[in-house]
């Protein structure tokens, strides 16, 4: 269950944040969320995020694109309207396949790229007119914010977070 109160610790340096995350994890506190202005390498592993599967979806979308291209070429150029262009008739798929390779490639890339990006936007809840959810405007600039759930241990937690190098600590009541 999501705790109703969270503590927000601000950091100004990614190295300090990383060491803080490791300390917090070692103390077995649960990190709700971390907001950073740039990708901090190794942060996802340190805070225990599962690796992203978005590259796999991209591969699958690419396969879909390839299949779509193959079927489309087969239907349009062979089945539905076989043409005799310059004395080179379109009678069997295999004979004409080399001419379709560019289209197959382009559609594979088209599907892989666009569907992956759409998946990314939807999974991360991003679209035009979406309201941003970073709790502090400084987190897109040069500050890092770690959110930790509070279970009646705020005093102790505040002291602990200060020790990890946090420059600002706020207790937020998340009224649901």
């Amino acid at each position: 269950m999501e705790p109703s109160k969270v503590i927000q610790a601000m950091y100004t340096d990614d190295d300090v944040l990383m060491s803080a995350v490791k300390k917090v994890k070692a103390e077995k506190h649960h990190i709700e969320e971390i907001y950073t202005p740039f990708p901090v390498h190794g942060l996802d592993k340190a805070m225990g995020l599962a690796p992203t599967r978005i590259a796999i979806t991209s591969f699958m979308y690419g396969c879909v694109g390839l299949i779509v291209a193959i079927l489309m070429m087969k239907f349009i150029m062979i089945d539905d309207w076989p043409q005799d262009i310059g004395g080179k008739p379109s009678f069997s798929y295999m004979e004409n396949m080399p001419a379709f390779v560019p289209i197959m490639f382009e559609l594979t890339v088209f599907f892989a790229a666009h569907l992956m990006v759409i998946t990314f936007y939807l999974r991360s809840k991003m679209w035009p007119f979406k309201k941003a959810e970073n709790p502090d405007p400084r987190t897109t600039d040069d500050h890092f914010l770690m959110e930790i759930g509070v279970h009646g241990n705020e005093k102790e937690l505040t002291r602990f977070l200060k020790e990890t190098g946090a420059v600002e600590i706020n207790l937020i009541d998340k009224a649901h």
Binding site: Y35, T52, K130, K131
Partner: peptide, 24 residues
């Protein structure tokens, strides 16, 4: 805020962002 699509910079967003950039 319209053109930034509500980007919030969560750790998970960045993880996906990095992967998406790499694949693209």
């Amino acid at each position: 805020s319209l053109v930034s699509f509500g980007w919030s910079g969560r750790a998970k967003d960045w993880q996906r962002f990095e992967e998406v950039s790499l694949v693209l």
